[in-house]
Design a protein around this nucleic acid. Structure first.
Lengths: 117, 117
DNA sequence: TCCTTATATGAACATATATTCATATAAGGA
DNA sequence: TCCTTATATGAATATATGTTCATATAAGGA
């Protein structure tokens, strides 16, 4: 707790202390922000949208998302590291699909919010 | 539609076309990713958490979030531009509070997801 | 083994982004 | 008007991040 406490009268000190004490732990905040950051790129959002509809290979994803194959691979790596997609290999081809049911929910909720603006 | 269509047999061309046709428009994708990006910073998440509990002034926020006043002001500007918080002035003091009920929902949903990992 | 195809990987690079530092601005009191 | 306080703003800076380019790696067929 810093010592630069405001002198304004809007909130009691003990109320402030209570709020501060209840915040989720540091590692959860970090994980949360990391989670949201993954959705914070338009190309990754497109990839997630397409994968919410069907299992797709890298080349098809690159094609329909209008991205280079390499860029898609990089993004898929990020999505895998964050456990949002999973990989199935068949010969030389890699197929990706969603590995997290929350993605569609979150996508929908945020879309609802955007449309209310 | 690019011409680098994959020859793999996982999905029919018309299925692929249908998926591509259904994606939300460009401006919605952009708005969505922007929305998520705002939550993708730990300090902004902290600010939003605190404001979900009470209306607070900049100095108190800076204090409990462990940030410099200037950094808080910058972040609050971003949050205001994205209509997530609102400002009430009283004399020299500015008080901020949530301007969007979705914030708590989104925060909770994501926290649930994080805890399932 | 060599060649082809699909994809992953890493470096380079351009751009984005959060914080710091300095100070401008706003509000209020003496 | 001057001074103090609270906050906003802008430039500088360090770091992060997404894309491109080149190529390594994996898989399979000849």
């Amino acid at each position: 707790m810093e010592d630069k406490q405001c002198l304004c009268k809007n909130i009691a000190q003990d109320e402030l202390d209570r709020i501060t004490a209840e915040i989720p732990p540091e590692n959860e905040i970090a994980a949360l922000s990391e989670f949201f950051k993954v959705f914070g790129d338009p190309n990754r959002l497109r990839i997630l949208y397409f994968l919410s509809k069907a299992e797709l290979c890298v080349t098809d994803l690159a094609s329909i998302a209008g991205m280079q194959q390499s860029a898609v691979s990089h993004q898929l790596k990020t999505l895998r590291q964050n456990r949002l997609v999973k990989l199935r290999k068949d010969g030389v081809t890699s197929y990706y699909s969603l590995d997290d049911l929350h993605v569609s929910e979150i996508f929908l909720m945020a879309l609802t919010h955007i449309k209310e603006l």
